[in-house]
Design a protein around this nucleic acid. Structure first.
Lengths: 626, 626
DNA sequence: TTGTGGGCAGTCTGCCGACAA
DNA sequence: TTGTCGGCAGACTGCCCACAA
């Protein structure tokens, strides 16, 4: 697809412009006096939850968040003496001029530099040439390992996890005795490292020997640090590191006092805001508590998602193994985080409580755009038709069956397959998520959302595949939805190839239907191939149903999508990820880690699999950066 | 002297207050969560030219200089987009609240943190308790060595310069075979290092062996870096390092953009200025091109020193061996450094040209308080009578003979011994300083200053010691001064003990007398012991005289010392250093390095030696910090 | 006086399979 | 499947003096 566009450009003579762009891009790199940093590797080091805005796109910049990053970096909280900047709003609409990736020469610590141009409204935005800036992308083929004492000791080499070696490294010639090869790997600074990769020992294992200790020494790696390998699009191996958070005692920068830093952040933004001149910021994903440059689409989507006290929500966090996992929490209050300095700010306006306490600290205040609610998951914009990159439908389904319903630029609710609904129900009744345990007001919210899921154009036998439920109209479908399911066992296939049984103990209590004043426009969709779907889905489920009430079957979010969403900001993969997202969110028990190689396989078994789940999900969650 | 004062304090019951101060001092240290850094070691690492203001004293803070430090640290020049801060003057009068010494945990890079409180005038200053803050002091017993390849290689140890070992290390037991001992040394962070010090080899030499390579590794020393040892007042050995300026390619901080840093500096100062609230800055002596916190005394002294285009001046720079040397230059213009943003600023208002080009870059613009002119050298405040610490007069002279003339708090010109005058003349005619070569207007300035040196109360035979000149009144003394001296050879004794001949080729051309409208109040002074002086001075000089005109013999600087000089700011050692300073400045050929162990020996031969020349000089130059 | 290199002994690095978690 | 250990060979560190600058 992209190559076609490029070819056309060459034909109609615009290749000169293209090469000019290339030159300017090169010039930009030379200005920075450093080689361009590989985006996939950068993102791999940044972690699965980090995404950057696209140059030219619109964002909201949150000075509070920026200040938080400074505080986190200096490990000193903000001085109360910091002056107010009356001209500086709590959120500053900006156009992204420039995004460059960086890595500290010494520590390999990654960070991004962004130039932001304050704008008054979305209308005054001028297009900014992208200079061939490819969308940053989280790598698909990668692995990340926490280094052990043996890995970092001078006594030995690096023990490569078997799956990592088989997935990432070039195929070994197993006829050799022992099988071995030389790996040539590049780091963020484009330094070349050569490792001897050998398969030996009893039992046999993959090891990196010669060259490894040099790497450990140069990067000053210790046990507990992480090393990650990725393979870029040219199948080249790249290596990145993540230093563990070594507790350094409040590092003063020796350049600026922390006060001056905070003042500098605010004053620079205030000056830029008043003069409408661009300003430059650094975003340090692994230091900053939260992202503070939020795409407009993501922000607006969050603004039009109803949140209320008592609502339960999900939020993604990174695990130790650099994968994502969702934690569930409850909104305890909606209030200003800093009512004195930043009244009416949306930054961390939600005070929350987490269902789980324990490993890994989670913030007690979050921002609306960080959380997932059932409602927010069903509300997303319509993508442009060309954008279906890398979202490969399952065999037996055409792509359009996973496409977004409707053609206009309005938020719409997709059609759901029956599995989703089953899982939806299951999830909401999963006692692991403490649903209904801490607050009686949770369930009304959830059930109201359940009601608002519109199901139509779905044949009965498809909807009921693998179950003994049958119905004939929307009303009965909703009855179905509201029934009670007893312990539900989903058969899932894990990466190992073995079939595992995941037992979801689900029980539903006190489901009280509620109405939402949300209307829903539904457009046509093509009907799915029933038989394929039915055969692809083989849940061994034991279901019990309980009749529930429902009123509204058509809901329409009061959002004008075209006004809110800049087409540039539209995420890719919306067309297919929506379904996956729903099933993901719904079927995911709150204590289940979303490992990329295992997470979506059960969904796949149920004919809802997506090849690049992390990628698509990331985009879906409001990031324009894939 | 100091111990007497302390004893008295104990007697009259103020010891409780002292211990309270000690406790508060300790508390301050604990707040910083680090051990107090040894001031002498810090200053040794900072270099001989660096001094810090005293807590409680008054200073001028120069935002431009601070910004320069940021630019030097980030290695990026200031963006022209930086906003103006109309409330921020180019020089901000502040009271120093706090000065703490720091060193980077990783690199040992030293820096100082200061809290400054903007004040409107000197009258509103409240006394600030010093919490036992001892005046920082440049070490007397120290040596600094540039590390060779052998010193830093893994193959061997550290070759200790003989003199360093003999001066600093504990006496070796030379009866041992081989003589050796264990040195226990502390660094800036109070880490303990043990080195085996051994005297062996053929020929014999001092070496540090065991333990040295650990130190090299931990501090990541390379050939070209410097290591320095000092002995503190408790005779404890301390070690410091100075990393060579390794050219790192424009290090971005990953925290703040350089713009934000510059803005932060200015905005923080502006906010502090408008709110009269304290603000905190870091001063990094080895990064900052110039000191930007200037004691009021030093500033005012400079302001009342006449400078004019074409004037020649001296300015101290640090040599590679961590000693000082003076470079001579000429004022080319007096103008605003940054007329747009900082009109009428005194910061780098002098555009200069240097007599020597070559090794080591020197700035083309300097500030008035950085330079030495003949006039500025003779203008200094009167010290409080108690302050004569560590300034030990030579045998044959009583301390009062080196005391400042006069009792009031006014700037005064001291009495000069004849040697000084001879050297003064010599220096001005030294062709090495290109006097009169580049600008015809130099000499009038100099000769006018010569005229303004008042010489009285000096017996003729003393004045003329070692020469065949005689006179009987002031007028003839001035005639003497203005005579032409042909090649003058000063006999000086170097540290080696060998006598060297320093040949000053001096010739005077076109001396045109000029009047200055400066009056001079002179108070009594005790007469010197003529015979001792005469015998102590043994120059072998060949002098030729030329009659010159002179008018004013009594000059009085139009300065009210008590109004300008805060008594807290008065430097120590003024009483004796003045004479030394003059002789130093005068006899110093511009290409002569002021090595502390050799510099003042010739002066000493001429009965003008001072035991702690660097220390005294530093104070004299306007720094309240010794 | 001191920087560098050769000689040499003792230590450390780094590759191997064994073993166990 | 992979973390750590003992064994072992070879490389490196670090102390010594010789030699020269």
């Amino acid at each position: 697809m992209m190559s076609l566009v490029q070819d056309q450009a060459k034909i109609d003579g615009s290749s000169n412009a293209a090469s000019l762009f290339d030159e300017m891009k090169l010039f930009g790199e030379m200005q920075n006096n450093k080689k361009m940093i590989n985006s996939e590797l950068w993102h791999a080091c940044a972690g699965p939850l980090v995404s950057l805005p696209q140059p030219g796109s619109l964002v909201f910049y949150f000075p509070q968040g920026h200040s938080e990053q400074v505080a986190a970096t200096t490990r000193q909280s903000v001085n109360s003496q910091i002056p107010n900047y009356p001209n500086l709003p709590s959120q500053l609409m900006c156009q992204v001029h420039n995004v460059t990736l960086h890595a500290d020469k010494e520590t390999d610590e990654i960070y991004a530099q962004m130039t932001l141009q304050p704008v008054n409204s979305e209308n005054e935005v001028l297009p900014i040439p992208n200079f061939g800036h490819t969308k940053s992308k989280h790598p698909t083929d990668y692995f990340c390992k926490n280094l052990t004492a043996s890995d970092t000791s001078t006594h030995g080499g690096f023990s490569v996890p078997r799956r990592a070696a088989e997935k990432l490294f070039p195929q070994l010639d197993y006829s050799m005795q022992p099988p071995n090869q030389e790996l040539i790997v590049r780091d963020l600074h484009d330094n070349v490292w050569t490792f001897r990769h050998i398969y030996r020992g009893q039992p046999k294992r993959h090891l990196l020997t010669t060259g490894w200790s040099l790497f450990v020494g140069a990067k000053r790696l210790r046990a507990g640090d992480s090393v990650l390998f990725i393979r870029d699009e040219k199948a080249q191996l790249l290596v990145g590191i993540r230093q563990a958070n070594r507790q350094m005692p409040s590092l003063p920068s020796s350049v600026l006092s922390t006060d001056s830093m905070h003042i500098g952040v605010l004053a620079a933004a205030a000056h830029a805001a008043s003069s409408r001149s661009p300003f430059t910021i650094y975003y340090n994903p692994r230091t900053s508590p939260s992202q503070f440059v939020i795409p407009l689409a993501k922000f607006h989507k969050a603004m039009y998602t109803q949140v209320s006290v008592g609502m339960q929500f999900g939020m993604m966090f990174e695990t130790e193994e650099s994968s994502k996992r969702r934690y569930m929490g409850t909104i305890m209050a909606i209030s200003d985080y800093d009512p004195l300095r930043w009244p009416n700010s949306k930054w961390r306006s939600l005070q929350v409580e987490w269902d789980e306490h324990g490993y890994g600290e989670r913030p007690t205040r979050v921002s609306v755009w960080e959380i997932e609610t059932p409602e927010s998951i069903f509300v997303f914009p319509n993508p442009s038709p060309e954008r279906k990159r890398q979202c490969i439908p399952l065999p037996g389904l055409t792509g359009s069956e996973f496409g977004l319903v409707g053609q206009s630029n309005t938020y719409q609710i997709p059609h759901l397959g029956p599995e989703s609904i089953v899982k939806l129900q299951t999830q909401f009744k999963n006692p692991n998520s403490r649903l209904g345990a801490s607050f009686g007001c949770h369930q009304p919210v959830y059930s109201s959302i359940l009601q608002n899921i519109q199901i139509n154009n779905v044949p009965t036998n498809y909807l009921m595949a693998g179950s003994n439920i049958s119905n004939s109209n929307l009303a009965t479908k909703h009855e179905l939805i509201q029934r009670r399911y007893q312990p539900l066992v989903l058969q899932s296939t894990c990466a190992s190839g073995k079939t595992e049984l995941v037992n979801y103990e689900s029980s539903m209590n006190q489901i009280i239907p509620q109405n939402h004043n949300i209307k829903h426009t539904v457009s046509d969709t093509t009907s799915s191939d029933e038989s394929d779907l039915a055969s692809a889905s083989q849940p061994s489920e034991k279901l019990e149903h309980q009749k529930m009430q429902s009123n509204n079957t058509s809901i329409e979010p009061e959002i004008n999508g075209s006004a809110i969403i800049n087409p540039n900001d539209l995420p890719d993969c919306i067309d297919s990820s929506n379904v996956e997202k729903v099933s993901d969110w719904l079927m995911q028990p709150s204590n289940y880690e979303t490992r990329p190689d295992a997470l979506f396989l059960s969904a796949s078994e149920n004919a809802l699999g997506i090849l690049e789940p992390l990628d698509c999900f990331q985009e879906f969650m409001g990031n324009t950066d894939s």
